[in-house]
């Protein structure tokens, strides 16, 4: 049995009288691709903020990479990578500058950074565009670069928040090739998506409804339990009766 790299016990966050995340308990194992699904407003973002050390929980327990989410947020941030469609790289910096900037933030030394940066540009076949403003690159390339930059400091866990939004179906699948590669090398992948076919690519999937985890299992088991053909059906069956207005 692999060790748990994320473990939560009745993790809760309230905003005033509103309970955004309501006593969620689950664990994610090392090297796992864990899909974290839920409708807009179900509490995913709040839960992710707590797990990445950006928001203190109201109650409950959680450890990420062995560190406590109340007291050791700095250590958590050093042990994780983060990428989302909304926040990734700077468009008005070049790929090389982005690597240097984010590598620096993640605490890499300049020598290490130069070495790793060059290797990265080479592996992504980006050498020719290394000094072009990022804005001029296709979205698919930016996403690959953002993903690789988030892995530069060799984190134990990478959090991907809707990493594939808006890209074409070929680029989306090439991105998943990279996710598989990272998982094969031992990185734990925690990923959110609105593409239900991508839920099928995960080892296990949790579905949040109204602040709680309504289901958590492998895609195969979920489909079997809900007597559904696809994860889309499972999701719609669970999320449709949500009481909380999507607000």
């Amino acid at each position: 049995m692999a060790e748990a790299v994320i473990q939560t016990e009745k993790l809760t966050r309230r905003f005033g009288s509103f309970t955004a995340v309501d006593e969620i308990s689950f664990s994610v194992l090392a090297g796992e691709i864990f899909g974290f699904l839920g409708a807009n407003g179900a509490g995913k973002t709040t839960a992710m903020k707590m797990l990445t050390g950006l928001l203190a929980p109201t109650s409950g327990e959680a450890t990420v990479a062995g560190f406590d989410v109340y007291k050791q947020t700095e250590s958590i941030r050093r042990s994780i990578g983060y990428m989302s469609q909304r926040f990734s790289l700077y468009d008005d910096l070049t790929p090389r500058e982005n690597i240097r900037f984010f590598g620096g933030i993640y605490g890499l030394g300049s020598l290490e950074l130069r070495e790793k940066g060059e290797r990265l540009l080479e592996s992504l076949d980006l050498q020719e565009s290394a000094d072009t403003h990022l804005a001029a690159l296709p979205l698919g390339w930016k996403q690959k670069l953002a993903f690789s930059v988030a892995l530069l400091h060799e984190p134990k866990i990478i959090f991907l928040d809707e990493p594939t939004g808006g890209v074409d179906p070929v680029t989306r699948r090439r991105f998943w090739d990279m996710i598989y590669q990272a998982a094969d090398s031992g990185v734990t992948v925690f990923v959110t998506t609105h593409y239900m076919d991508e839920a099928e690519y995960c080892d296990r999937v949790s579905i949040m409804v109204d602040g709680r985890i309504a289901a958590l299992d492998t895609p195969e088991e979920l489909k079997k339990n809900f007597n559904a053909e696809t994860m889309n059906e499972v999701f719609i069956r669970l999320a449709r009766p949500a009481k909380r207005m999507d607000s």
């Binding site: 839920g38 409708a39 807009n40 469609q85 809707e162 939004g165 808006g166 609105h194 239900m196 889309n232 999701f235 719609i236 999320a239 449709r240 949500a242 999507d246």
Partner: peptide, 13 residues
Amino acid sequence: DEPTTGVDAVSRQ
């Protein structure tokens, strides 16, 4: 123009 980008599967339906 892309009214359903970033919207969950239930809301999209």
